[in-house]
Design a protein around this nucleic acid. Structure first.
Lengths: 247, 247
DNA sequence: CGAGATCTTGATGAAGTTCAAGGCGCGTGG
DNA sequence: CCACGCGCCTTGAACTTCATCAAGATCTCG
């Protein structure tokens, strides 16, 4: 089922998400304790990691890959409610069934903890609880930003918003703030973008084509995107372009 | 400016939100410590409590009344991103400027703490940090539910969703689960409902009229609503009506 | 009672969806 | 190696839903 995906790190010290994940504030002793209860899981692109309503015996951190959190209505309409990137936390302490579907968009590696040992440790370890609070507050901010996109932006603005979110994230890995030329690959299909933005995949396709015709983006294939002028893209997204980032 | 709104309680022991707010897990000693640094603020209906970007020297809990959290684009489009009800927490530890506009919808009383004493105390008091984490996770769930509404529901479903959220909340104060007949007052204007749902106020008005004509709701005046059959309303909202509530 | 805020209703039009057809890219098997 | 099939994407045409503009009704409060 899970063919050998990218090999996972075994020592927390060398973990690529060491400084951003829920464990980021832990000291050496705490890390040792975590190390004793952690284990890795791998998923292939397309695989469903969790179904909404499933019992889930573990929580964990994304180590590599991209996954989506989606909600579905009986008639099949679906809305993405979260995009899980490396270092993001999956699962909610204190709840034992999954609230949303979690689907791997690319090959994914997660660093998992069985729920009850983790909850015990969290109760004893303010470093973990604090970091989780921080991360949850950040997610809440992201969700609220997203609500403005869903509720009030036009299709074109929605696409531009999504592109600039991805562009900024990719750029911020390399260096400081994204300006001028930015290049990245879309980690999502057109359909996933539609589910993210509350659109149909046809509208997504049309608006991407329109942005390309207008020179806001350059496409190489369907996934490889060049943004010649990041300010222009942010303009199209309708955001305040004062460049202010939340701290 | 702030005329004498509803008189605030002074002892935490008698506080109406004692068992739900951020202080709900505190023991007697912790309450005493909080009591020493707390103070009350009152706002009149319509007053802006905070402007996005403002320096905010305090955090606090809603004691009574209703307020909204909104985000605005330069051209005036606005989206509500949170509805603050009694016991809800306002402000984010670790951030010192407000991210959103906070507007009192009715007369409001808040129980406030200056930020740095509160943060100090939170660092020493796991009871507070834990409760805040719980509350934040609940808010995140609510935001995600809301994202499905904004992204994928029709105007009629949006209105039905909002009505059933309000109806369920009001009913859950009284007793267990809402079924059959429910009566409540809308705490929001048509415009605020529109900002909540990503619609125009005209569409809100039309859809409310339509639900009335179809017998899903009965209106007495513009604000007083009777839902003869809660299941019918939930059906209209397009939610799974298995009645399952998140725990 | 009157004035302003809030709400309703109608007519028109634009934005996005739906349905439909076809293209591109890629891996598989002949 | 090429053809075929399949997943993913693009584009077009007709249609639906909701926004916009506009007028008037109702409520509320001094």
């Amino acid at each position: 089922m899970t063919k050998h995906a990218k090999l996972a790190p075994s020592a927390c010290g060398e973990c690529p998400i060491r400084h951003r994940a829920v464990c980021s504030k832990c000291d050496a002793d705490e890390l040792t304790e975590l190390e004793a209860i952690k284990y890795y899981r791998s998923y292939e692109a397309g695989q469903t990691i969790l179904w909404a309503g499933d019992q889930m015996g573990f929580v964990g951190s994304m180590v590599s890959g991209v996954a989506t959190l989606t909600q579905t209505m009986e008639d099949g309409r679906t809305q993405m409610v979260g995009l899980l990137l490396p270092s993001d936390f999956v699962g909610r302490p204190g709840r034992d069934s999954a609230a949303y579907n979690v689907v791997a968009t690319s090959d994914v590696v997660m660093c998992c903890f069985r729920k009850s040992p983790f909850e015990d440790m969290m109760a004893r370890t303010p470093h973990i609880a604090h970091r989780l609070l921080q991360m949850t507050l950040d997610e809440l901010d992201a969700a609220r930003e997203w609500m403005l996109v869903l509720g009030r932006k036009t299709a074109r603005e929605k696409i531009a918003s999504l592109l600039s979110i991805i562009a900024r994230r990719d750029a911020s890995l390399g260096l400081g703030v994204a300006t001028g030329r930015v290049v990245f690959d879309l980690p999502l299909t057109r359909e996933a973008m539609a589910d993210y933005l509350g659109l149909t995949l046809e509208t997504v396709s049309r608006q991407i084509s329109a942005l390309r015709k207008d020179g806001v983006i350059v496409l190489d294939g369907k996934r490889h995107v060049t943004v010649p002028d990041m300010d222009r893209l942010m303009d199209e997204a309708g955001d305040d372009n004062d460049g202010g980032m939340l701290i």
